[in-house]
């Protein structure tokens, strides 16, 4: 088991961690989930038939683990929203802080990171896999279990949506500068 773990860790760990982090936006959660991924991988390692590449297989498991966690969080948020928080309070809590190594990054990078979260879950997955993780269209389709044309369409819409959101954000900032409330 340790040998398999060693090899997988060396080859894929940082990439898997980064994928999970961009999906959940919380370092501690990403640390827990990446361990979950290894547990699932090691349990089913013998049954991996090599029909897909190891890289897409691992990303696909990471995706399932992450989506499960996000769904649980969404259910929890819905309950909290009803029982304790007003919608406004809940939205404020949705903003996870920026990763601390990003303090010195340009404002445009921070804006993009914050806005990415406003896309739909499918759009976020495609943007993260395609551009941040640098997976090809074919690999992304294999991870998501989609057709390549669906990946292309979602990618096109996601980038457009991101641009619209960034434009809206810019407009809002300018209004605030002008003192419009």
């Amino acid at each position: 088991m340790e040998d398999s773990f060693d090899r997988l860790y060396e080859e894929y760990h940082q990439s898997l961690f980064q994928y999970i982090f961009y999906m959940v936006r919380n370092r501690e959660v990403a640390e827990d989930l990446v361990q979950e991924v290894y547990i699932k991988v090691l349990k089913s390692y013998k049954s991996f038939e090599g029909k897909s590449s190891e890289k897409t297989w691992l990303h696909s498991i990471a995706r399932h683990v992450t989506i499960d966690w996000i769904r649980k969080q969404n259910r929890r948020k819905k309950k909290l929203l009803f029982f304790t928080l007003s919608e406004k309070e809940n939205l404020i809590k949705d903003h996870e802080p920026l990763p601390d190594e990003w303090v010195t990054q340009k404002e445009s990078v921070k804006q993009l990171y914050k806005t990415l979260h406003k896309c739909t879950q499918d759009q976020q997955q495609v943007l993260i896999l395609r551009f941040i993780q640098s997976l090809s269209i074919t690999e992304t389709a294999a991870v998501l279990g989609w057709s390549e044309s669906k990946v292309k369409t979602t990618q096109h819409r996601a980038v457009k949506r991101l641009r619209d959101l960034l434009d809206q954000r810019l407009g809002l900032e300018e209004e605030l500068k002008d003192g419009i409330v």
Partner: peptide
């Protein structure tokens, strides 16, 4: 910009 997002490393 997405392609050049800063890498996030597990500590």
């Amino acid at each position: 910009q997405l392609e050049n997002m800063p890498p996030i490393k597990d500590r």
